[in-house]
Design a protein around this nucleic acid. Sequence first.
DNA 1: GACGCTTGTTTTCGCCTCTGAACTAAGATG
DNA 2: CATCTTAGTTCAGAGGCGAAAACAAGCGTC
Lengths: 394, 394
Amino acid sequence: MARPQRRTVRDIRRGNRAVLLRALYFSGPTSRNDLTARTGLSAATVSTMTADLLGENIVVEAGQVESDGGRPRVLLRVNPEYGFAVGVDVAETHVRVGLFDLEMTERAKVDYMLRPARHDPELVARHILAGVEVVLSDAGVSPEQVLGIGVGVPGIVEPGADGVIHAKTFGWDGVPLGALLRRGTSLPLYVDNGAKTMGQAELWFGSGRGASDAVIVLLGVGVGATIVADGTTFRGVSSSAGEWGHTKIVANGRPCRCGGRGCLEAYVGIEAILDRAGVTSRGDWEEDLAGVLASKSPVVEETVTYLGVGLANLVNLINPEKIVIGGWVGVQLGESLLPDIRRATAANSLAEPYAATSIVLGRLGPDAVALGAATLVLEEFLNAPQVARITAAG
Amino acid sequence: MARPQRRTVRDIRRGNRAVLLRALYFSGPTSRNDLTARTGLSAATVSTMTADLLGENIVVEAGQVESDGGRPRVLLRVNPEYGFAVGVDVAETHVRVGLFDLEMTERAKVDYMLRPARHDPELVARHILAGVEVVLSDAGVSPEQVLGIGVGVPGIVEPGADGVIHAKTFGWDGVPLGALLRRGTSLPLYVDNGAKTMGQAELWFGSGRGASDAVIVLLGVGVGATIVADGTTFRGVSSSAGEWGHTKIVANGRPCRCGGRGCLEAYVGIEAILDRAGVTSRGDWEEDLAGVLASKSPVVEETVTYLGVGLANLVNLINPEKIVIGGWVGVQLGESLLPDIRRATAANSLAEPYAATSIVLGRLGPDAVALGAATLVLEEFLNAPQVARITAAG
DNA sequence: GACGCTTGTTTTCGCCTCTGAACTAAGATG
DNA sequence: CATCTTAGTTCAGAGGCGAAAACAAGCGTC
């Protein structure tokens, strides 16, 4: 029934430091003066703390701003090169590895194609480890500068150090990807579900920015969601919360590749849409979907309705401030049909929660999964900037 | 993106005091020695803090326990009579007001019948205010000893001081119940949805005890849920999260009294069950339901299936550690059909989250709503024991 | 250009909290 | 009654915060 186990006077410093660092990160270049206002800390505390951070090279000066008739403000910002984060997207058809600086600017990236149905865990792990070396050397960054590696994968990731993955549709059942990777690197690892890392990206840098209660849905080959409660991704007891794609919207409905029936994914996943439209794919799903959308087939309207039902269930159950529709299928549908999707959602929601929700499209492209994975590293950095690193660097 | 705005050294004391008080409350009579172990605080801190609490009469001694060969331990407990909480249940057919001590023992209660379709807000408010006076005088408790009044109501309660309620099925649309009550009392008020207060009760004192990620569902005339994430009730952006009864399980299905179609409530709410079974009620729904359950009608199996779908959606989306089935319909169904309900849920859930969930029956009776409402007061007390009160009392 | 005015940043000082260690309390044992 | 054991209290020290004084760095004015 709640477990805030705060304790000693040192925790305060740590906590306030995190607050300050976050303010600095998200407010761009800011003066100490602004920071006192933004954080609620006293000027004295801001002064000593920024002095620490400057000394550790986590924060750097960024020019001055004249203030009418007084001492000019010195602007401060997080040093984007203090450290780097690797973000990895393990998808159905490829493994993508990106290197980001602390501002989440991509410095290098590399892709490895996967032959469908060839998702050998060892191979994937080798791709990732090779990719890390490639992006580091491409960008001229040394491993000591890397704060961690975030990995977004399909399926359910067990909590725990081994990063064990269950992804039925991927052919992975109990694959300890984290352990496999740890054989090749000693950097901190963060393995998470890809829909969640994409959600993290949209929440921090995309359409979800600033929302504290939000749902970011991913529509693609699979269908998933990230539920954000009070600013934090909601994971549930075994980290599998958000399996929206396999919630049932038609009791005893269409069979789904998960083995169940009537799942949302069996109506609005790309394979389901094409199947229902009677399209036999020649390989390019995006083109196929464009064709369906252009055809004015009744399947389009049905899809919108089903999607509306799925979204409405989120509205009623979660009562989010914002719903972000992401994933390439989601964006492609949304670009032409967003008003219809909103209408369908409204028709199936209670009035009050619907009125409190805005439904928008994601605005990060296909790199969102890798970006979000890197953001896991950033989040950790902002929460507890390692003093150990600093002494090593200094 | 998270807002832990901790600040000064005083917050530590407040936080640690709350930790200590909670440990004391939930561990029953305990020695200071035990408390150091339970809270992680140092013996010194426990000593000074318990001295404070004893001085304020919030904590009292409760005997001794000999320890083989040393100084005996002095047991401490929260003083159950330090203060009292009023819990109110505003239901379709009655208003119930209960007075509880800090141990949540009911000291007095009173009921007021409501004629169906006669839910005049003024009348309800008068009943509540009258009820408070009655229970106080029955129990010989003075208003100064009351820490607050919790009220559980149907429908959606807007966040804010006025306790504005939207309950379509109740005929209330924008009723400021909080404001109405404040005209007759100056005690702290906590107005919340009845399904949520019931959930609170089951979470703190019933089958949900100890779970930090749980869902407590209420099946009765209406159908709702309390979602507990990390020990805290999840409310969403406008406090309406948990409207499980109006999530859709059959796209375009049976019409629901909310105006929508295919809602879970339209299949497993009591009216829906009786309607689908072709029963014309003669007024006693409990008896009617017992009749349907005894009849071996296929409606029973269907109901279990629909309920399983609804529960499975919670399992997939929320990934709770525990699902508690409450409400009189839920308990009546569960008593004979729990294994079937579990089976139906398993059939519609993903394997991993289902394996992590246990589905159990609620064990608090029909008073759970009022008890939970009073628990809102208790929760506040445990979080921030008012020093103002103390100086006034001492 | 000296002086005051304004605004931003740092330093000083007092107060608060926690903890470890020394100390006191209260019983058991022989 | 001396000693042992366990429980609880007191004290000194370290670390943290905020208010306010001090310092810094410009502008404007006479």
